[in-house]
Amino acid sequence: MEHDEYELIKSAQQGDDNAFASLYKRYFDFVYKYLIKITMNTHLAEEITQEALTKCYINLNYYNGKAKFSTWLITIATNTYTDYLRKRKRERLFFWQKTEERSTNLQWHITNEGVEWSELMEGFSKLEDEYKMPLILKHYYGYSYDEVADILGVKEGTVKSRVHYGNQKLRKELR
């Protein structure tokens, strides 16, 4: 961990709001862009990022420095998104959208910027969140199976099987 970041975290834990504001600025886009890949929706990603960083402020004293601060934030963001899904499912709100429907938001955004929405992205957007999360964390962010298991709060074997089935499903979609 960088010395500067360590100092910021320590100050924020002691109640320095300016230090927390600096951390907030530093990590907002990191969390936001992680959540875009999971939710495939910019509005939802922004909403959950704000909620996750609020949770980070409330629970900052529980951060013990064992994992990287970014990893800790990703864990909070993942949990916040999982809670959001659970809540929506429970409430059965009529505006609840399926993953594929949500992905059209991201598709619209990136095709507007001239980036092609490939078959692979289409296939990926159709995957269930439980497969998307380990795939992204393992292959894009480069976390080990052990770390992904800690982030998702499941066993290492579960992560391995989800990555495997996620791969299989993705290949099926591409056929």
Partner: peptide, 12 residues
């Protein structure tokens, strides 16, 4: 693709 998305989506 994800790198492109990170690049294209504006910071918030």
């Amino acid at each position: 693709k994800f790198k492109e998305i990170d690049h294209v989506i504006p910071n918030r």
